[in-house]
């Protein structure tokens, strides 16, 4: 056939009693126009024991984040043709592996919930929309688009060491999404909650998050802006 592509897949089945191992797989696939998820699904069609998550297959739902050749990416928008062989696919680092490419996302979502990710506005509700100028709305660009895939947070060494106490880049990006929203009134409480040596200040500007984000967002910049707010209200 000559179209074979080589893959190395992280395999782990907790019921087998075996430790995790890397499985070499050769797949007959033409990489042109195909994404890594297409290949993983084709592999699963041959060997249905391979466990992975997937949903929208167009990079907007955040299900299929995996570590590909050392980088966290969404399998569905990672072109096969760009990848060096053997393509090494592992579960996201820094989270407990449930099986194969599936990790336990709860530590990630717990931190997301911890920033109280909802708009707070205690003014009486107008009978129409609250007004927001296009400029005020533009401040949410680069923030609200986050898909909670965890590529950034699980690429962050600070989160690896402190998953219970450090919010992580995704959570902090979302924290800033509400701080930056002209309609949100809870800025003081939000800043209070983040002004903590662990929750925010574990960020060391390693910038893995920026490199990892498949949506091109910049959590490090958001973290910087939160810090600016903290400094501003202090000095």
């Amino acid at each position: 056939m000559g179209m074979g592509m080589k893959f190395r897949l992280y395999r782990y089945d907790p019921e087998s009693g075996e430790p995790p191992f890397m499985q070499d797989v050769e797949l007959d696939i033409d990489p042109a126009g195909k994404m890594l998820l297409d290949a993983l699904i084709a592999i699963k069609a041959q060997d249905e024991t391979l466990a992975l998550r997937r949903s929208c297959r167009e990079g907007v739902c955040g299900s299929d984040a995996v570590n590909v050749n050392g980088r966290n990416r969404l399998a569905c928008i990672t072109p096969l043709g760009e990848l060096k062989e053997p393509v090494e696919v592992r579960p996201l680092p820094g989270l407990p592996v449930i099986r194969d490419l599936v990790v336990d996302m709860e530590p990630f979502f717990r931190q997301y919930r911890s920033i109280k990710p909802w708009l707070v506005n205690d003014d009486p509700e107008p009978e129409v929309e609250r007004l927001q100028s296009p400029e005020q709305r533009a401040r949410l660009d680069g923030l609200y688009e986050c898909i909670l895939c965890a590529c950034c947070t699980t690429a962050c060494p600070s989160f690896w060491w402190n998953p219970e106490t450090f919010v992580g880049p995704a959570g902090l990006l979302q924290a800033y999404r509400f701080i930056a929203d002209s309609r949100d009134e809870a800025i003081s409480a939000r800043l209070d909650h983040l002004e903590d040596p662990y929750r925010l200040y574990r960020c060391r500007g390693i910038l893995n998050c920026v490199d990892a984000c498949p949506k091109g967002l910049n959590p490090a910049e958001a973290i910087g802006r939160i810090r600016t707010q903290l400094v501003k209200r202090r000095v």
Binding site: S114, T165, E195, P197, Y201
Partner: peptide, 16 residues
């Protein structure tokens, strides 16, 4: 989630 956060320090150290 129960966590004793918001120690109101950190910004000082960071500035320092």
């Amino acid at each position: 989630m129960k966590s004793a956060s918001g120690a109101h320090t950190g910004t000082g150290s960071w500035l320092l």
